[in-house]
Structure formats: structure tokens, C-alpha cells
Computed example of a mutant assay.
Amino acid sequence: MEAAILLQAIAIRKTEQKISVEEAKKKAIAALAPYLDPALTELSLIVETPEADIPEWVDKNKLDKEEDKSYSFTFLGKRNGIEVSDESYMVGVDKESSRTAISLSAQMEEWL
């Protein structure tokens, strides 16, 4: 009986530790900032939902409801107000530990 109560308390504590999307977004930007080109003054956040990749004919009620363990953010660099598609940055933020993982794919040539 005590073990069940203890496990329930741990589960509640874990649920309470999850960070919000907004907190995760701030953390992602802060983690990414040191790696950005100082001349880059603006980023565009690409919002993707996993459901968008599922074809309409699929019965979504039959799919596993497994929750993602991290938030994923994709940013595109903007130069002179224009998104640069080959200057993208992906940042993952763990929902429970708040740890970040960064993937840079900036393939910029030097601006003349």
C-alpha cells in the first residue's frame, strides 16, 4: 500500500515538473543565442504539428497516444526581413529535465 502511494506521489511530482511550451521556447532561444551569427537580427519560428503529417484517411483514434518527451522548435534565420531556408536551427527541450539539444544546419556563404 505504501509503495503505491509513493509511486503515485512520484508520478504527480514528475507531472508538476514539466515546463510549458512558452518556457521551453524561451529556453530554446537562450540556448541557441551563442551560436547565432551576430549579424542575424531576426529569427522566424516554424510551427509544425505531428498531426499535419498524418494523411486524412488514417483513423487518428487508432493511433498510439504516446506523448512526446520533448518540445521541438525549428527556427529560420531572416536576412533583410527574408527567411533564409538553408539557415535553419533546431532546438529540442526535454519536457521534464529542461535540458536542451541543438542542431545547427546553417549553410551560409559569406555575404559579399
Score class of each variant (00 low, 15 high):
Ser20Thr: 04
Val21Gln: 09
Ala24Asp: 02
Ala24Met: 09
Ala24Leu: 15
Lys25Trp: 05
Lys25Val: 12
Lys25Arg: 05
Lys26Cys: 06
Ala30Pro: 14
Ala33Thr: 11
Asp37Val: 05
Leu40Ala: 13
Thr41Cys: 08
Glu42Thr: 15
Leu43Cys: 04
Leu43Asn: 02
Ser44Gly: 13
Ser44Tyr: 05
Ser44Cys: 05
Leu45Arg: 12
Ile46Tyr: 09
Ile46Trp: 08
Val47Trp: 00
Glu48Pro: 08
Glu48His: 12
Thr49Trp: 00
Pro50Ser: 10
Pro50Gln: 02
Glu51Cys: 02
Glu51Tyr: 07
Glu51Pro: 03
Ala52Cys: 13
Ala52Ile: 00
Ala52Met: 02
Asp53Lys: 04
Asp53Gln: 03
Ile54Leu: 07
Glu56Met: 11
Trp57Val: 00
Trp57Asn: 06
Val58Leu: 06
Lys60Ala: 01
Asn61Phe: 15
Leu63Ile: 10
Asp64Ala: 12
Glu66Tyr: 14
Glu66Ile: 09
Glu67His: 14
Asp68Pro: 13
Lys69Leu: 10
Lys78Met: 13
Lys78Glu: 14
Arg79Ala: 07
Arg79Ile: 09
Asn80Val: 00
Gly81Ser: 05
Glu83Phe: 03
Glu83Tyr: 02
Val84Met: 02
Ser85Val: 14
Asp86Thr: 01
Glu87Val: 02
Glu87Asn: 09
